[in-house]
């Protein structure tokens, strides 16, 4: 992979840091009145999802990381691995482990497309679309006439995720959920 110098760092660039692939989130150029310039860089470690803040002397460089983000359709879980398939018509399949799937497991629904991050052709992270439509499999019966004051109750969805929903929602209904906040958006 090519090396990238601090002045080429921009949001989304994938680089290697401490042996892990990272995505640059933010790069701030800092310079005192006179003297050495620095780049204060925020990077997201793609293996752990954690954000790091690191400083480099301006002009230093990092090795690029062979990272690709691809849309893939979720197929099935075999008890250990989660299987995805490319949506480009190649039918090429990838298996992701628990670490790569992480919290996204609770939003995985067959035939929905997810963003799969590949590092050296191995899935290292799966992210859900911002909104997803899921069926309610379990919730207490709806209460009449209590729709205006914002009361809510827990509901279990077909993927196993539990979200707060308004009291009027019943089992079997399909809801639109914001996966980033795990919040009910509306009926689908």
């Amino acid at each position: 992979m090519a090396n990238y110098s601090t002045n080429e760092f921009k949001g989304g660039l994938k680089v290697m840091l401490d042996g892990d692939p990272c995505s640059i989130v933010d790069n701030e150029f800092v310079k005192p009145g006179k003297g050495q310039a620095f780049n204060r860089v925020k990077l997201r470690n793609l293996m752990t999802g954690r954000t790091w803040e690191r400083t480099f002397k301006s002009g230093e460089s990092l090795e690029g990381a062979d990272v690709l983000e691809l849309d893939m359709e979720y197929l099935y879980n075999d008890g250990e691995m989660w299987h995805f398939m490319k949506t480009d018509g190649s039918f090429e399949q990838y298996a992701a482990d628990r670490k790569a799937v992480g919290d996204t497991a609770k939003w995985l629904k067959e035939q929905v497309a997810y963003t799969v991050t590949l590092w050296d052709d191995n899935p290292i992270a799966i992210s859900a679309p911002n909104f997803i439509e899921l069926e309610v499999t379990e919730t207490d019966p709806g209460l009449k006439g209590d729709t205006a004051n914002g009361g809510s109750k827990p509901a279990t969805l077909s993927t196993g995720a539990v979200v707060r929903v308004p009291l009027f929602i019943n089992e079997g209904e399909v809801l639109k959920i914001d996966t980033r906040s795990a919040e009910y958006v509306g009926r689908a």
Partner: peptide, 24 residues
């Protein structure tokens, strides 16, 4: 202050960083 390996930095470079990050 900066999450950086500064073991070979000069005096002035350290001062510049601390000035930029903690004083300015």
């Amino acid at each position: 202050a900066a999450g950086v390996a500064a073991h070979d930095w000069s005096r002035d470079v350290c001062l510049d960083l601390l000035m930029s990050y903690q004083v300015e």
